[in-house]
Design a protein around this nucleic acid. Structure first.
Lengths: 141, 141
DNA sequence: AAATAAATGAGAATTATTCTCATTTACTGT
DNA sequence: ACAGTAAATGAGAATAATTCTCATTTATTT
């Protein structure tokens, strides 16, 4: 049976190599956003640092990886395998933990209405949006 | 007559020095978010690079400067002199320009309701939020 | 105006990311 | 399965961004 990570690579016409599989496996297991630091230390003995950066760029190129910066300036990375998994992020300002949040449909509708209005008054054509929620997780609260 | 920038420093018990005044003047003139690169090149001959970083940290400490990262990984900086100037940002993915956007009161209310709901279901106590709108400015569209 | 404390400039040190190149690994056609 | 070719990797050098060091200058206090 073909592993999940190998299928992902094959589906995107990217050759299957050990580093790519290792990185994908960690991202898949983690299920959600992960700090670059954490990813690096998890993969330290299996993937060279330069290769990790290359693999992450490969995954960005095939559009299955999002990268963003936390309010504390940590690089954070997250798989996004399907087009329709629109969601946002909550950050803990104390421990740096990041998690996904999905907003209610009602609210996403209100948001897209607001964006339509902005489009009328501003000189921008808006393609995407990201909402970041910043606070404390229960451990740090 | 005391200059605006000097008053700001005095009001926050920060000593008035040339580099601090120069940085503040550029930020005040610019009125809105500015790229660190742009700030650096504007101040190149007046403020040493290390001092610029120090001054920006000083301003962060007294809570009159926001720093964030654009979707293209540019560091962006912005004065926020009053508590009640809550607003968000639009980014042009092509030229990197950033501008402020103020959302309608109706929408900010909807957003804060949504955050209240999230608080009920998630393990986070949310203190702040930032909404980033990403698209193309009229020049690049 | 002198004494003391704080801030600055210049460049060294550190950290994050990209690049180079010799070696290894994966894919292609047989 | 196998040789040949193209692509990917590891290790460390190169670059870029940010912080740190320390001798000198500037601000504040007396």
């Amino acid at each position: 049976m073909v592993k999940n990570s190998e299928k992902i690579l094959a589906d995107h016409n990217v050759s299957i190599t050990n580093p790519r599989v290792f990185v994908l496996e960690v991202l898949l297991e983690n299920k959600g956003p992960i700090t670059l630091d954490e990813l690096q230390s998890t993969l330290k003995n299996r993937v060279a640092k330069s290769t990790l950066y290359r693999v992450l760029n490969d995954l960005k190129k095939i559009n299955i990886l999002n990268e963003f910066t936390s309010p504390e300036n940590q690089t954070v990375v997250e798989l996004s395998l399907s087009e329709n998994d629109h969601h946002h992020h909550v950050f803990c300002t104390n421990c740096g933990e990041v998690e996904d949040v999905t907003l209610s449909e009602v609210f996403e509708k209100q948001l897209s209405d607001e964006i339509t209005n902005i489009h009328k008054t501003s000189k921008y054509r808006i393609k995407e949006h990201t909402l970041e929620l910043i606070g404390l997780c229960s451990d740090c609260d």
